[in-house]
């Protein structure tokens, strides 16, 4: 049941894509899809965007994973 008037935005993390309602903040959207905001950086067109920005209909936000692994 999505709010047609507000539309949706898309979050992309590596090969995963999530659809979220527009109108919420980037931070809320990240939590909404079960990710931890501390573990990702939101970008639009390659530029870092603030977490308190509100998503617009049609926004495509790429999340850059900040965690890297390997034990050495």
């Amino acid at each position: 049941m999505k709010d047609k008037a507000r539309g949706t935005a898309t979050l992309i993390l590596r090969d995963q894509t999530f659809t979220v309602p527009a109108g919420i903040t980037v931070r809320e959207a990240i939590r909404h899809v079960g990710l931890v905001p501390e573990s990702v950086l939101p970008t639009r067109d390659g530029e870092l965007i603030p977490e308190d920005e509100r998503l617009q209909d049609g926004d495509v936000i790429r999340l850059v994973a900040v965690i890297s692994g390997g034990w050495a």
Partner: peptide, 25 residues
């Protein structure tokens, strides 16, 4: 290099980092 070393996948370090980030949150 954004792609990880293929052996880093499922590494314990990543798991612990995720856990700590949940606490941090």
């Amino acid at each position: 290099i954004y792609d990880e070393c293929p052996f880093a996948q499922g590494a314990r370090s990543i798991y612990f980092k995720e856990v700590l980030n949940r606490l941090e949150e």
